[in-house]
Amino acid sequence: MPRNADNEAHWQAIAQRYECEPGPINLENGYFGRMSRAVQAQYLEHISFINRSNAVHVRQRFEQGENIEIRRQLAGLIDVDPESVAFTRNATEALQSLIRNYNRLQPGDQVLISDLEYDTVKGAMRWLAATRGVEVIEVAHTHPASFDSLVQTYHDAFAQYPRLKLMALTHVTHRTGLVMPVAAIAKAARERAIDVILDGAHALGQIEFNLAELGIQFAGFNLHKWIGAPLTLGFLYIAPERLADIDPDMGEFHYPATDVRARTSYSTPNFPALMTLPLVFDEHRQLGGAAAKGARVNYLRNLWVNQVRPLPGIEVLTSDDPRLYCGITAFKFIGRDQQTMVDRLLKEHGLFTTTRTGAAFGTCIRVTPGLVTSAADINALVHAITQLNTV
């Protein structure tokens, strides 16, 4: 176990950096993360400042240099060329732009999604069928999943559907937290000349990765989940050598076609949020980055999964293969209505979780600890699941 992952005193000291509203124990930290007190304070200062200075600062300072430095720091976060990233409002917007503007499809081509993709990504790929005349292929992953079964599902699909040209792939699935074997799948896709658009919404900040090593050339990310930025911040990535394969967004002309920023809609952004990012990135590094954050939430995940998995009447849906899980994990009460059980977890035990639907295995309950979650919170979850499982 990485140093400090199970050190409650260390992590509760870190938890004090975050302001939390009294109430239920929040085990739905996968929706969006908290800003630290310091980030929140700076964000509010920037809101006041931009409101006072208005276009004078934005036109003279932000647009003339500050934004370039912030973009450079963003690129440094994932060790890529600054010319390969462009800010968006979230990962969804980034992924929609990549899918919408991908220009290598012809009528009759096939595109691939799985049951574990984010619903908006599925919708965008289906939109291609209506507008480009392509065929959407959807595969359902076997359950329980293993590293080999996940890879084999794609090998089988590639062999069965020879007209595949594009596929969506989620790094960390939002339903169960399953971590996909991205490098192995991308390699197999590349051998078939199939392009991959990676949904990295839940990966950035809790998993260490290198896009070049993964073999990924198109991706979308959030900054408001595990990085700790204000809401309204995400970004897209396009490998520079592949920029021409993504058209400027709906004829975007404010940047030249050779600029990745033309692949996003041109609009007035959340300047105060963007100006806060240098502090966000600095705090992320000070905490130990994805290595430390990931180790902590993985420890908390294992703390409850190891106790709950053996219980009759409970099915944990996420693999224990360390290559395939992160802090997010889902389970179900076998034979019970999962939304009813989520309601009971909240009403009877003060634990806030959420249901996820859409996967082949049905509705599940997603549990996501965060940086403010304690081992005592996790023990409360174990107690609640145990009690509800017998009632």
Rank of each mutant, 00 (worst) to 15 (best):
A5I: 13
D6R: 12
N7Q: 03
W11N: 09
Q16K: 15
R17C: 03
Y18Q: 09
Y18K: 06
Y18A: 04
E19F: 00
E21F: 03
G23I: 04
I25E: 00
I25N: 01
L27F: 01
G30S: 14
F32M: 12
M35F: 02
S36F: 01
V39P: 04
A41S: 11
Y43V: 00
L44P: 00
S48N: 13
S53N: 05
N54C: 00
A55E: 10
V56N: 13
H57M: 06
V58H: 05
R61I: 04
F62M: 10
Q64S: 11
I68E: 14
I68T: 11
I68G: 02
Q73K: 01
G76D: 08
V80F: 07
D81Y: 03
E83Y: 11
E83A: 15
V85I: 05
N90Q: 09
L98D: 04
R104A: 07
R104W: 01
L105C: 15
Q106L: 10
P107R: 14
G108H: 06
I113Y: 15
G123Y: 01
G123I: 01
R126D: 15
T131C: 12
T131H: 13
G133I: 12
E135V: 12
I137M: 09
H141P: 02
T142N: 09
Y154W: 15
F158M: 04
Q160K: 14
Q160D: 14
P162W: 00
P162N: 02
L164S: 03
A168G: 10
T173N: 06
T176A: 15
G177W: 11
V179S: 02
M180Q: 13
P181S: 01
A184D: 13
A184W: 09
I185N: 08
I185K: 11
A186Y: 15
R190F: 09
E191M: 13
R192Y: 07
I194G: 07
L198A: 02
L204E: 07
Q206P: 08
N210Q: 02
L211M: 06
A212R: 14
E213L: 08
L214C: 08
A219L: 11
A219R: 10
N222T: 02
L223S: 07
K225Q: 12
A229L: 11
P230K: 10
L233E: 06
G234T: 03
L236P: 08
L236K: 12
R242T: 06
D245H: 07
I246Y: 07
P248N: 11
E252A: 11
F253V: 13
F253S: 15
D259G: 13
T268F: 07
F271C: 04
F271W: 12
A273G: 11
A273V: 03
A273Y: 14
A273S: 08
L274V: 05
L279F: 05
V280K: 01
H284P: 02
R285I: 01
Q286N: 04
G288P: 08
A291H: 15
K293V: 09
R296Y: 10
N298I: 04
Y299G: 05
N302I: 00
R309G: 13
P310F: 13
G313H: 10
D320C: 10
D320N: 15
R323E: 10
F331V: 00
F331N: 10
K332F: 03
R336L: 02
D337E: 15
Q339S: 12
M341E: 07
L346G: 10
T353I: 09
T354M: 07
T357D: 12
P369H: 03
G370S: 03
V372Q: 09
S374E: 12
A380M: 10
A380K: 15
I385T: 01
T386E: 14
L388T: 04
V391Y: 15
